[in-house]
């Protein structure tokens, strides 16, 4: 306990100067650095619970869906929905993340024990975004964090058929396709996916981890559908909802498909 508290400030300082380095453009000959505020868009990894195996599996599935999206990607670990687990091995978790190209830089939310453990692992705490905390409203970091989902929303609407071999990605927003999506085509979105036509290819919504993302289509004939890394392949989809209008969403980590 004692060591932990003692360690805290130094850890924090190191991290701060690290993050500031990029934006530092000081030309002052005397000072060797200058602190500046800046906004950056970051991915949030919302943790529900942690154990090595399931985290590893889920991460590997998410990353394999979109390998190019995670390369030295800084992420903030949100602990707001992880209230039941008191001990989390953040050092192990951090190593796992880095293995897949994500670099945890801070934690958000969480109880005291969790925050302490995070600090020991070199992860500072950011003010919670949705806790109604008055202080958070005014700090710049929070604005940054809050801005993630709305600031760069860029929805995409496609009106021509998406053919085998084609790939369409709506980065930072929803993808709406008003045409068939052929087998062998791949459509991806950070947000939701709507297909007003038969969906015969692969559809991946919430590819950056948005578990609230959904998929809607007029006729389910897909090779694969995935939301935030939880997926089902054609073989699992060929039930009574096959070739029906459906919506898909996540319930826990289960992909749930129901008629529209």
């Amino acid at each position: 306990m004692c060591t932990a508290t003692f360690d805290l400030p130094s850890t924090k300082n190191r991290l701060n100067s690290d993050t500031m380095q990029d934006t530092d453009a000081a030309i002052d000959s005397e000072a060797c650095f200058k602190l500046k505020g800046n906004r950056v868009t970051m991915t949030i990894l919302e943790l529900y619970r942690y154990d090595y195996k399931s985290f590893n599996d889920a991460l590997s599935a998410t990353v394999s869906n979109a390998p190019d999206f995670f390369q030295q990607t800084p992420v903030i670990l949100s602990l707001e929905k992880c209230t039941e687990q008191s001990f989390i091995d953040f050092i192990e978790l951090g190593e796992l993340c880095r293995e897949y190209g994500m670099v945890p830089v801070a934690v958000r939310g969480g109880n005291e024990e969790q925050i302490l453990a995070a600090n020991v692992a070199g992860l500072p705490k950011l003010p919670a975004a949705t806790s109604g905390n008055k202080v958070t409203e005014s700090t710049e970091t929070t604005i940054t964090v809050r801005g993630i989902k709305v600031a760069e929303s860029a929805n995409k609407i496609i009106t021509t058929p998406i053919r085998s071999g084609q790939q369409v990605y709506a980065e930072g927003g929803d993808l709406v396709v008003i045409a068939p999506v052929s087998a062998g085509a791949e459509i991806l979105a950070d947000g939701n996916i709507h297909v007003y036509g038969p969906l015969r290819g692969r559809a991946l919504a919430g590819v950056k981890g948005d578990t609230d993302a959904r998929i809607f289509c007029q006729s389910l004939e897909a090779e694969l559908i995935s939301i935030a890394g939880s997926y089902k392949v054609s073989e699992d989809l060929r039930g009574e909802l096959w070739q029906q209008a459906v919506k898909a969403s996540l319930e826990g980590d289960q992909l749930k498909i129901s008629p529209l």
Binding site: T160, P161, I162, R163, S164, G165, Q166, S182, A183, G184
Partner: peptide, 13 residues
């Protein structure tokens, strides 16, 4: 049919 679909995509792009 799959290959034709691929060709149609290339024709459009």
């Amino acid at each position: 049919v799959r290959d034709s679909d691929r060709i149609l995509g290339i024709l459009q792009s």
